[in-house]
Design a binder for these strands. Structure first.
Lengths: 199, 199, 199, 199
DNA sequence: CATTAAACGAGACGGTACGTCTCGTCTTTGC
DNA sequence: GCAAAGACGAGACGTACCGTCTCGTTTAATG
């Protein structure tokens, strides 16, 4: 890796630290996660961590984005609900695994502007952006009502997932995502409301 | 207070500690919140804190529920959307003020079963319960479709609020709540879907 | 001990720290002596050391003066040489045991004004003072020549002991002290010079 | 320098390191002297120091013997006291300048056998040897009493200088050396004892 | 009332971890 | 192939808090 050589950085060490950080955060939680413990488990010196990462939050975020296989990319098959099921189902799976890290980062961001910035730039914003693009396409081609408040809709799509996983500490699976989308969006193409008053 | 006297407990001290905990958590965040700092600011001995609260999470939760003026109580005027605006608007206001504490408690609960239990019992569950009751009443009297998945609807109602406030770190006001509800529920009584396909 | 109670200080802990400091300094030397190692061996927290002693030098000096059985007190039997043999023999014995600590303190004092001050006040000066008093008495009552430079004589009495023990790293016993005094002072009472030219 | 080339060694770097070591030791003391600081000031890599010197003590000793203009050589004009004044006055001047380094080396030698060996071989022993030779010559030609214990006399000559400079941290000048010698040796050639009893 | 038992502010204690500095080794790059 | 530069694992620095444990003092309740 040219980048590693540029900075004379040991890639093995970097990987070991990122892995140790993720594992430990899952085991003990963000609040109890200790830099010393990460160094210990990674077989690294503390200085090596402090040299390359400014805080445990940023280290964790790096670990998350480096190691994560999930992507912000949104499919566009022309079928909005199917595309949303695909993307949000995948997101739900990833989030379930990473819940302890994710909630830690969110908490950390509330009093660390640097972490807040990076969390937004590297995790939140790209996903919103991809979703916004797909939803706007749906609006443009008439899949969604022209008056749709896209930003609000994004909140309504993802909010329940975050809420259920992080606050209610409940499970998140694809079936839930399907039910959620079915209730929120018109199924099939019919103009069925998410919630309808009885006739 | 009979309860206080029973345990020979100093009420002034208790109040000072709860206040200091809330203030400090807002200032430095949950992760950096220190028992010693709380004791210092409250002019209390550390032992007094350790005597009455098992962890900083439980202390904060106590501070939150003791000091909070908001209530889980749901009005039932017969107009579901109006009632939801009333209750969720109030909730949104409270949550905005308490976001740094709330996110800390949620994070803490992810690795502290005791805190998880209490957070659920004292904060989350009562509010869900009250909401569930109101929604079920709406279903029963035909305000909502009989097939409504009430639990899912609760997630869809509150999820975006949590998501926006805690994860996206955005503002939360009554206007947002109104727009959210208008999109999610049929406005006015008409069977307008939350999201409609164009004709 | 009233003093200990006054400051709520744990006397056991204090003793364990002083002992550990002396032992470790003897084992590894002043330069390699670590506060952490002292705490470890004494079964004490580091803060307990930092709370009560400002530096490892002062800690060692405290250990030396607390634990040392030797005294600056000079006997005065009327026989100067005999009194010097008594006192300096005792001093030589003590110094032999404490050489590694003593040289460390002397080295430390060269760049730590606080330690220099205390080392002088608690170790060097009292001994010089006691010796000066005894020598002045000898001058006053005619045991020594009235023109004797007492300060210089003190240097000449103790200098070789320090030199031999610390710089030349040689042994120091009472026989050496006797030969030293015999050569420096007139033996028996005759006016034999310390070093005489041949006739 | 042939020697330098032999080992492909950079003489500039060597000089810069020795100079930096001496200066820094004078500034912060032996205990606080850091290899890293020497490298930094000398503009050298740390490895260059570790490659050529086994310890900071040996490096300092090298610096001392390389840079020092003083010599162990003893003059022999036939006048013992004059020769001693010459040599010891010079020694006193040098020692005054180098006291912080000297005391550091002596301290270091107490727990570093390698340094002890070298310090003796390169600094202490040559000077004692030269002094011994001169004193023995004085004994042989009747300048000193045949029964003189030469080794003891060396201790008595140099001991007070070390004691005064290092332990008592007092000044050392030629006047002191003269007084010291005058009291220890018979002045002029007269058999005046160093210390005499009154008649 | 005086006694007494618990809670209180204070803070020392043995510890763990902080973020920084230095150790001595190792690797990379330039001369 | 040495030298400068500097990353690395290791671990000590001096400080901040952890949660526990006395200290005396204050405060209620009981006898």
């Amino acid at each position: 890796m040219a980048w590693a050589n540029q900075y004379r950085r040991n890639e093995d060490s970097r990987q070991a630290i990122l892995t140790a950080a993720l594992d430990l955060c899952r085991e003990v939680g963000y609040d109890a996660l200790r830099i010393e413990a990460i160094a210990r488990r990674a077989g690294a010196g503390k200085q090596t961590i402090y040299r390359w990462w400014p805080s445990k939050g940023v280290l964790l975020l790096d670990a998350l984005t480096t190691g994560s296989s999930d992507s912000a990319a949104f499919p566009d098959t022309g079928d909005l609900e199917a595309d949303l099921v695909t993307q949000m189902g995948s997101a739900a799976r990833n989030m379930s695994t990473l819940a302890p890290i994710l909630i830690g980062l969110i908490e950390g961001a509330h009093h660390d502007p640097d972490l807040a910035e990076r969390l937004s730039a590297e995790l939140i914003t790209p996903r919103r952006e991809a979703c916004r693009t797909r939803l706007q396409a749906a609006v443009d081609r008439g899949e969604l009502d022209p008056g749709t408040d896209v930003e609000l809709l994004i909140d309504q799509l993802y909010g329940p997932l975050y809420y259920r996983l992080l606050a209610a500490r409940d499970t998140l699976d694809e079936a839930y995502v399907r039910r959620h989308l079915a209730a929120l969006l018109p199924a099939g193409g019919r103009a069925t409301p998410a919630v309808s008053t009885s006739p």
